[in-house]
């Protein structure tokens, strides 16, 4: 099939960007979206023009590096799919596809379709870990984890940190990412010791970069791992509780 692409081109973080139109010819159904872009780039290079810059790494939907706004949807039209796993059979011959980078204050455009997502790293650095840095590793079966808690924590842990939730949110909110990272640890026994400090620190770091949640639900539709907004509800409860519990923990409550 032959496609027309309208791609956002921007030389650098401070440059003004614009859409440019390219032709993608002989696109096969089984190509991934990124392979299609690779082909366009090869043609651009052969013509001696600057290829389109975009993020990608594993190309099997598990690393969270890729991410494009395709026809106004984060990661394109297929639910539960990262851009790299989106195949061209989802598009029809002669279609025009508009490709834009993620847009958020926290995600400044670096070049073309590549954005800086280090604000997500800031949230992880604030508490997205457990401190278990002494002693020998414990036997895996020694810590009992209720099955429902393990399952729910696993659903949250599926987050690959691609930022599609922020991109899809009309408010540029980072709540789905933060709440998934919190629930992943806050629901497990290993996460309990630091639960309240983690919640307070991660939420307040999120507040430095992102917008607020208006419960639109666009994020869970865009999420390539189909993480539900139920985790945002859990985060809302835990944040309020953390304000009380953290004082109790140091003997002030």
């Amino acid at each position: 099939m032959n496609l027309t692409l309208k791609v956002w081109r921007q030389e650098g973080p401070d440059a003004a960007g614009r859409f440019e139109t390219y032709q993608a010819n002989d696109v096969k159904d089984e190509m991934s979206f990124l392979e299609m872009l690779d082909n366009v780039n090869e043609a651009l290079i052969e013509d001696g023009r600057e290829p389109i810059t975009f993020d990608s790494d594993c190309r099997e939907g598990i690393c969270g590096t890729c991410g494009l706004m395709i026809n106004g949807q984060a990661h394109g039209p297929q639910k539960g799919t990262a851009t790299c796993q989106l195949h061209m059979r989802k598009f029809t011959d002669g279609e025009t596809i508009v490709i834009e980078p993620w847009r958020a204050a926290a995600f400044p455009v670096q070049k073309d379709l590549m954005v800086d997502r280090s604000a997500l790293d800031a949230i992880i650095e604030a508490g997205g870990y457990i401190s278990a840095d002494t002693g020998a590793p414990r036997d895996a079966n020694e810590i009992l984890v209720p099955k429902p808690a393990a399952d729910t924590a696993m659903d949250a842990a599926a987050c690959i940190g691609c930022g599609a939730c922020v991109a899809a949110c009309p408010n540029g909110a980072g709540q789905l990412f933060t709440s998934a990272k919190l629930a992943h640890l806050n629901l497990l026994p290993q996460g309990q010791a630091e639960r309240w400090k983690r919640t307070e620190d991660m939420v307040e770091t999120m507040e430095l970069f992102f917008g607020s949640c208006t419960n639109y639900g666009e994020c869970q539709e865009a999420c390539p791992k189909e993480i539900p907004i139920d985790f945002i509800a859990l985060m809302n409860r835990d944040y309020l509780k953390s304000k009380i519990k953290n004082r109790k923990l140091i003997g002030q409550g």
Binding site: K6, W8, G17, F19, M69, N71, G72, Q73, V98, E100, R103, A104, A105, A106, P170, N171, G172, A173, F209, F210, G211, S212, T214, Y216, G217, E218, Q220, E221, A222
Partner: peptide
């Protein structure tokens, strides 16, 4: 006000909302 600050540059192409 927070939400306006969180996305200073709007999407330049039309958004296709799914859930809202």
């Amino acid at each position: 006000v927070i939400n306006r600050k969180a996305r200073p540059t709007k999407y330049q192409s039309p958004r296709d909302y799914v859930a809202v």
